[in-house]
C-alpha cells in the first residue's frame, strides 16, 4: 500500500468530492454509480472512470462492503508481549511463523510487540497464544475486545 502523501495537484476537486461522499456509503440500488453521479453532477461513465483511476493510483484502499469478520464466525484477539531487546528478532520469527498472527507491530513501550490473532474458532486463540508462550518462554497478554464502538473515522480529502 502506498504510504507516501500525494503531491497536492494529483487529484482534482471532483476526485475529492468523490472521496468525501463515498466514505459515507454507496447505494444498494440497481444503478448505484448513476445515482451517485447524479448527486455529484457528473455522468455515470466519468464516475466509474475516476474511481478506477483512484483505485489504480492507490488512493482508494477499498471500495465495497466492509465485513465484520467476527460476525462471520472468526475469532480475534489483540495480544502483547514484553520482549527483551536482545531476543527481539528471534521472537519476531517465532511469533510470525504462526499463520494465525494476522498483523504484528513493534511499539515504543515496555510491551513492545503487539499482534492480532485471527482464528476460525474461539478456542484457536488460546491454543495459539499458549503455543507462542511455550516457544518463547514469554507471557502473551490477551486483550480480547469486550465492546467495539461505532467508528466515525473520516478523512477529509
Amino acid at each position: 500500500m502506498r504510504r507516501a502523501p500525494l503531491p497536492p495537484d494529483a487529484i482534482d476537486a471532483t476526485d475529492r468530492q468523490i472521496l468525501n461522499l463515498l466514505q459515507d456509503g454507496f447505494p444498494l440500488t440497481p444503478f448505484p454509480f448513476r445515482d451517485t453521479a447524479a448527486r455529484l453532477g457528473i455522468d455515470e461513465a466519468a464516475l466509474i472512470a475516476r474511481i478506477r483511476n483512484l483505485r489504480e493510483e492507490g488512493i482508494i484502499t477499498r471500495f465495497g462492503p466492509f465485513f465484520d469478520a467476527e460476525a462471520m464466525g472468526g475469532a480475534f484477539c489483540l495480544c502483547a508481549m514484553a520482549v527483551p531487546g536482545v531476543r527481539f528478532e528471534e521472537v519476531v520469527t517465532l511469533v510470525n511463523a504462526h499463520p494465525e498472527v494476522a498483523h504484528n507491530y513493534e511499539r515504543a513501550h515496555r510491551l513492545n510487540m503487539w499482534f492480532v490473532l485471527a482464528t476460525d474458532t474461539p478456542e484457536g486463540i488460546e491454543t495459539t497464544a499458549r503455543a507462542i508462550e511455550g516457544e518463547t518462554g514469554l507471557r502473551v497478554l490477551r486483550f480480547p475486545k469486550q465492546r467495539e464502538f461505532f467508528i466515525g473515522f473520516r478523512v477529509q480529502a
Binding site: M1, P5, L6, F26, G58, I59, F63, G64
Partner: peptide, 29 residues
Amino acid sequence: VIARLAAMQDRGVIRRIALAPNHYALGVT
C-alpha cells in the same frame, strides 16, 4: 444479491458499503 447485502448490513455482518481512501496518500500519515 441486493436483498442479501441489505440483510447482512442490517445484521451487522456488513458494517457499511463504502469507499475507504488511503489516508496515507491524503497526508494523514
